[in-house]
Nucleic acid binder design. Structure first.
Lengths: 215, 215
DNA sequence: CCCTGGTGTAAGCAGCTGCTTACCAACCTA
DNA sequence: TAGGTTGGTAAGCAGCTGCTTACACCAGGG
């Protein structure tokens, strides 16, 4: 009995875990961040458990806490990385269309995972209503987006108008990705983009911000 | 010791509970529905526990399950009641401004509870990301709103345009009530209404739907 | 050789969750 | 008085949560 108590270590001399082969390469810390990004986007903060995150990364649960200390800290790192990456890789005057297209182009079929740019918004949407500290982390990133959007207008209330633009993008994401409401959920992305950018043209004063995407 | 085991019944011969005095009158079932409406709006589906709902109603937890069977069923009844009430009491061509003003007028200060019309939207927003069956219940109500909004346009894609209007309203509520993002969170309601209705005028084809509120 | 430190693991802890059970008291009818 | 129905209650159950602990492995170095 005692010999079998240490079975895991003895029977598997290598350092690789069983489920780890399924997960991608990279360090343990990196795999945890990737798995956390995916699961937070799919289920939101509360429904993504640390056990599931560790399992997807092919890593023991305790390692998650050794690397990040708490679930909230892991959430903060994962969300900040995804969001800042999108902000850094797109110029402000294309932010609206990039966010719109990243929200529209991946066909929102069930359990079809989003990737890259759309993931941050999906995470935000699904995590709404979580603990205050979590929404605070998300809000600060949202402020970065609003700041970038505010550069597109030159009126006195440009910050307010930027918030309204961001509001609409969030609402569209809410309806499409989370609620999957028809007809918006499976509408033609080009037409949605046209309708929204047309209306936003009047809100932002007809600047280049709302020019239609090249597609 | 045994005599004290049944203390609650013996020491309090009346049928009233201790915390019930704080709760309003009405039947037990009614009190549970009211308490559930409030708590679901304040915290969303997952963070509002059946213990807290029963406590706010001044009612034993077990009675909640006797009356409604499950937490989900209670959520469905509470949300449907609030939402349908708003739909029934406002004409379609005033729905946009009513939803907007109910979202804007109660100053979103911390733990200031919303009431009536705004509660349904707040519940929806905070419950996003909950279990599938819950969002399904919420989605069906959202379909009712979209149907009412679709009556305001006469183009072929009026349903899609109505979804876009609803998207914007939801997004604004998300930013103001849940995320409390500035400057939108404490902007002048009249100015927000003006900006939004102006932009929506172009989206809906300049119908009476987007006429500014009387204030 | 022992020691030390980074990496990995199973097992468990306290606390909360939705929900159930077994019981109690008052009321209505016969 | 007997018996059923209604409304109320405390206690507990199984399951899940984030997080901790105690232990095993293997490298490098003195």
């Amino acid at each position: 009995m005692e010999a079998e108590g240490t079975e895991a270590g003895a029977a598997r001399p290598g350092r690789g875990g069983a489920a780890r082969d399924r997960a991608g390469g990279g360090s343990t810390r990196e795999r945890l961040l990737v798995a956390a990004s995916e699961l937070f986007a799919e289920r939101g903060y509360e429904r993504a458990t640390v056990r599931d995150i560790a399992a997807r990364a092919g890593v023991n649960q305790a390692l998650l806490f050794r690397h990040f200390g708490s679930k909230r800290a892991l959430f903060g790192e994962a969300v900040a990385r995804d969001g800042l990456e999108q902000l850094r890789t797109t110029s402000p005057d294309r932010l609206v269309e990039v966010m719109l297209s990243s929200m529209l182009t991946p066909p929102p079929d069930r359990d079809g995972h989003t990737t890259g740019a759309a993931r941050y918004l999906e995470t935000l949407l699904r995590s709404v209503g979580a603990q205050d500290e979590v929404t605070a982390a998300v809000t600060s990133l949202g402020a970065d987006y609003a700041r970038a959007l505010a550069a597109l207008s030159d009126t006195d209330d440009r910050a307010l108008r930027a918030d309204l633009v961001l509001s609409w993008l969030l609402g569209i994401g809410l309806m499409r990705v989370v609620l999957r409401k028809h007809p918006l959920a499976d509408a033609d992305p080009a037409e949605v983009t046209r309708l929204v950018t047309d209306a936003l043209t009047h809100l932002l004063g007809g600047s280049a911000a709302t020019r239609p995407p090249p597609g």
